[in-house]
Design a protein around this nucleic acid. Structure first.
Lengths: 341, 341
DNA sequence: TATTTTTGTGCATACGTATGAACAACAACA
DNA sequence: TGTTGTTGTTCATACGTATGCACAAAAATA
């Protein structure tokens, strides 16, 4: 049953002022006498008045809704990141609307609704041909922030992890630990982050490869999750062609790999083979994995993305900003710091 | 820069009809001649027209926005469940707006915005004194669905897992496996689900306890996550007072416990001690844990919650519905099915 | 042919808010 | 006293859509 909601006109009536005075009372930049404001607030309190955002959106042309475009949220890092994003958005007086585009059949419908709801901004974390989507929104005047996505679009603000640095840090650590037969693994389905991390890893090592002191191989697993890693591990063990140090572009893949190793019991970690992951998802800290990894801070990423959005909302016509968020190597059991000394 | 958006009036002008005809063209229940509809659709396509949901909300008094109230989304099961909820909501022509109430200081602000945005419905999955919140919304005419929450409120629709059955299944399995010194563990911070699961476990066993064939203990860990389980495991091992079968009310606690066992290497699983978890989060399937558990289907839960919401949107004045979603025991390594034969 | 029914369209209005313009009251200053 | 400025309030309107009502045209019925 639709109860008639309390409007600013109701508040005005009770406070004995006009509707516009009520509206202005809630706008701190309007000049309203202290006495009147008190009266209005009291009346609003009494009636339980809350502004109608739909009506407000029509006038202000700002809904304060932020679309979070993602492909699923079950992936461990993704869910941690979304958590941080939601909190950050809330703390900025905005509201998150989640759009899952993992079902490619309905992407169009999902994206249409982004327009319908007059979003104030869109943060694209994955999925879809992001550039095209970004341009659609920007053309309509809606700010877009791309997170860990390709940076060809010159129109959207971009927040990236320092992915190449992540790969480089992993390479360095493995070398310092005296590992010489190295491997880097990512999912067959290329993601921007993984490609960049791989590149960082390869670039760092290429001088040593040329000079012959290090062997280096690039490998791929079927899926970018735990099971892909487990499968990859089983296959690698079967091939009897082992590296002594591996960098995985995602922690969850590394965890699957470690479980495959554990099951076969052929190679000891980190002595026979050292393993480094990337992201530092919470599972990496579980005792069973105790994974050495390159940490990505979801809080920092979220803060950067939302602050970019806020800046653009205030100053729509400035040049797009590209930001790189720093990374840090975390030593745990699969490559200990003492190994590297 | 605010580009003026395309309105139904623009479409009307281009199609040579009135604005109301455009509006009606998009409403399948209105009678519009085929020819006119074609013209309108063509014009709408050409201009890239999308309805303005803010304006529509004002008239229809329905935003089609659904609030998902949760306390964080990093917890494994919670994130899987939210994922299912988001998909289910999308597939019903609705939109999810996530509200994280884990920060108790800002709960009021968060909930206010639920009202401001004229939500069509609210699904409360955790956090906050849910009953009070539910009543607030229902009083305003907004349908509320409570998921895995206390069922005292007679006004909201409720979807619960069959939590007591979950506990009972675990108890049965442990008994059948010949375990006699049993224990049930949940987080010190009581949640509705955990309490009910514990109750189901205890009730199933109480006859045998009275008759003296089984010993039974209720225990608590500090936090309802992996680390709480690990801590609990370490403490239990130190106490040298071991059960031979344990039911954990959450998988993640069980995983922490298993890791503690593994590290000390005192007890073999499942021979010395059998472990059963609850929820069947994806980590439970990881080889390191291979956890026998009572499965909760997030898809089923989500489907039930959204369908309850849809029913109430169509028929607001029917009596509240309470639903129990079935559970199922999944045998894995920490209590094998052959043990129970 | 006259009357009723059906079909398709347009007109006018309402939803609840924000805001430019007008205005009244009053103070400040010459 | 007349001019100018300041402050606080109200009036009127716009935002983009949906929908009751009126009405014309066409179809069906008498």
């Amino acid at each position: 049953m639709d109860k008639p909601s309390v409007t600013s006109a109701d508040v005005a009536r009770l406070a004995g002022v006009s509707q516009s005075t009520v509206s202005r009372s809630f706008d701190s930049s309007s000049r309203i006498s202290d006495g009147t404001r008190q009266k209005v607030f009291a009346a609003a309190d009494e009636l339980g008045y809350q502004v109608n955002k739909a009506a407000q959106t029509m006038i202000k042309k700002r809904s304060d809704l932020v679309g979070l475009v993602t492909a699923g949220l079950a992936d461990p890092f993704r869910s941690e990141f979304l958590n941080s994003l939601v909190l950050e958005i809330q703390n900025n007086g905005l509201r998150p609307m989640v759009i899952d585009v993992s079902d490619t059949h309905t992407i169009d419908v999902q994206l249409q609704s982004l327009i319908q709801y007059q979003l104030s901004g869109v943060i694209i974390t994955s999925g879809t041909p992001s550039e095209a989507v970004a341009k659609t929104f920007i053309k309509r005047g809606t700010p877009v922030v791309l997170v860990n996505r390709a940076d060809h679009s010159s129109e959207a603000d971009i927040v990236n992890l320092d992915n190449e640095k992540a790969g480089a840090l992993a390479a360095e650590a493995l070398m310092k630990a005296g590992k010489r037969k190295l491997m880097v693994v990512r999912s067959k389905v290329a993601s921007y982050s993984s490609v960049k991390r791989t590149k960082g890893f390869l670039d760092k090592l290429s001088p040593f490869v040329k000079q012959g002191s290090i062997s280096l191989e690039e490998a791929f697993c079927e899926t970018g999750n735990y099971h892909g890693g487990a499968q990859f591990g089983a296959d690698l063990l079967a091939s009897k062609h082992y590296p002594d140090g591996v960098f995985f572009c995602m922690d969850c893949i590394a965890c699957g790999f470690l479980d495959a190793l554990k099951q076969s019991n052929t190679l000891a970690v980190p002595t026979d083979i050292a393993v480094i992951g990337c992201d530092d998802i919470s599972i990496a800290r579980y005792q069973s994995y105790d994974l050495t990894t390159v940490r990505q801070s979801p809080q920092k990423m979220a803060a950067a993305a939302v602050s970019a959005l806020q800046k653009r909302l205030k100053q729509p016509n400035t040049k797009p900003i590209q930001q790189k968020v720093s990374v840090e190597l975390v030593f745990r059991g699969t490559l200990t710091e003492s190994n590297t000394l």
